[in-house]
Nucleic acid binder design. Structure first.
Lengths: 241, 241
DNA sequence: CGGCATATTGAATAAGATCAACATCGGTGG
DNA sequence: CCACCGATGTTGATCTTATTCAATATGCCG
């Protein structure tokens, strides 16, 4: 892959979604005009990538404790960031889908491990190079700010699930995933039930049972375990409370 | 309170903690040199505050759905950001302590409610003014970046609790709180048990029981319900797994 | 001192985890 | 193309953990 093309084969809507964050009034200095209509910021960042890397499902992209020397642009596939505990349990803290950055951190070492949840293509970007460029190009620092603001919001939403029951957790997960991938129907889950379970904090058995329950209630239908149709989104929304 | 003084009566260590984030090698453009040794960035932001506001315990600072016109610097007290659900339950997504910003968001409206967890003094800052100033002063945009990176990391840590048991959740909470407030002993909880329960996703009864359990195990001791002594931090760390 | 918030403790209940058996899927090699 | 096999997902029975409900205690502020 050439540096000039930047492997921009992720869907355009992801990029646009990234851009409109903080879109507000026309007078806002960080408005849609600044972010939304000019791909140069993203382009400028991705120009720092020498070559893209591919990871097969379950391969580790960085470990907990690794230096935060690189951040990554995910051009294809999906990534999970997670932590494993001494008792063998695992928490998936976040999923990332195509068009998103991951590995941004304010410390010198990663506090989480990143793994490919499906086969992926990522563009590694030397953190120091990105930051050096951000010093001279304010659109790039703004871009980072926007990326982080988006991730913050997603984490806040997810955190609010900690006191909710199994149905609510999974309804929220499904609605969120369909929104992020832009799939309103025929939602193909880009991760295993085990990944979902570790993300929402339930056992795989409970995940399976609740999805079956949703199906029996007519909220969703399935062609296979991994490919759903959200027939009644409103019902799921109601469960989210 | 005069604009010149900016109500900087929060403890210096908070500020320093904020500054050393992303500190890395001397050649890093966003290194400790940039952030760590110059209070002008924070000063520059706080100069935008016309007057500080006080909120008594449980008062709402902003509601879910309110426009994100202001962000806030917390100069005294503690704040919780939370969401209430139709079934009457509440999730506390984050606590903020003196020296931190809150209310930063990438969208036009807040997705969470912010309330004073104790009596507080906050400095409201017009978001558009901060961003306008950030355009001309790169230290300010950097400062925002650092603030958000810190909040991201805290949320990630908290999110990982979703699949952990009651002891682990509370041990993590206590250790984290003592680190953030800098109190290694005589940890005074700046929030009610109900707040803690809604934060870690347990009932108040379970919170009470686990704390009692910690006390009986000799990990902590209490002079009152709200003032603890973490006698055996290592034991708590072990429980965090 | 009184009265209301907050916190503790116990007993019953419910939600989800765990254990175990079985089903299905997807890939591989014959 | 089909048979096989390991990985993934489903379903049922039982057990554990935390919730709920209820009663009591303690603290806090007038």
């Amino acid at each position: 892959m050439q540096p000039g093309s930047h492997g921009l084969n992720f869907e355009l809507k992801h990029y646009q979604a990234l851009q409109i964050v903080w879109a507000e009034s026309p007078v806002d200095p960080l408005s849609a005009r600044t972010y939304g209509e000019d791909p140069r910021a993203l382009h400028g960042i991705l120009a720092l990538c020498q070559r893209s890397s591919r990871y097969r499902r379950d391969r580790v992209i960085f470990f907990e404790g690794d230096p935060t020397d690189y951040l990554f642009f995910l051009s294809r596939g999906s990534v999970r960031t997670c932590r494993s505990f001494k008792d063998g349990k695992r928490s998936v803290v976040a999923f990332h889908v195509a068009g998103e950055f991951f590995g941004l951190d304010g410390e010198m070492t990663h506090s989480l491990r990143a793994e490919a949840a499906t086969d992926t293509t990522v563009m590694p970007l030397k953190r120091s190079a990105v930051l050096a460029k951000a010093v001279h190009d304010r659109r790039i620092s703004d871009f980072l700010l926007v990326s982080m603001a988006k991730e913050l919001r997603r984490l806040r939403e997810h955190t609010a699930l900690i006191s909710r029951n199994a149905q609510c957790r999974l309804a929220t997960f499904l609605i969120d995933l369909s929104a992020r991938t832009g799939k309103t129907e025929n939602l193909d889950l880009p991760m295993s039930h085990q990944d979902i379970a570790d993300y929402v904090g339930l056992s795989i058995e409970t995940v399976s049972r609740v999805i079956t329950q949703f199906e029996r209630s007519g909220f969703i239908s399935r062609t296979s375990a991994r490919s759903l149709m959200l027939g009644d989104r409103n019902a799921l929304m109601r469960i989210m409370a």
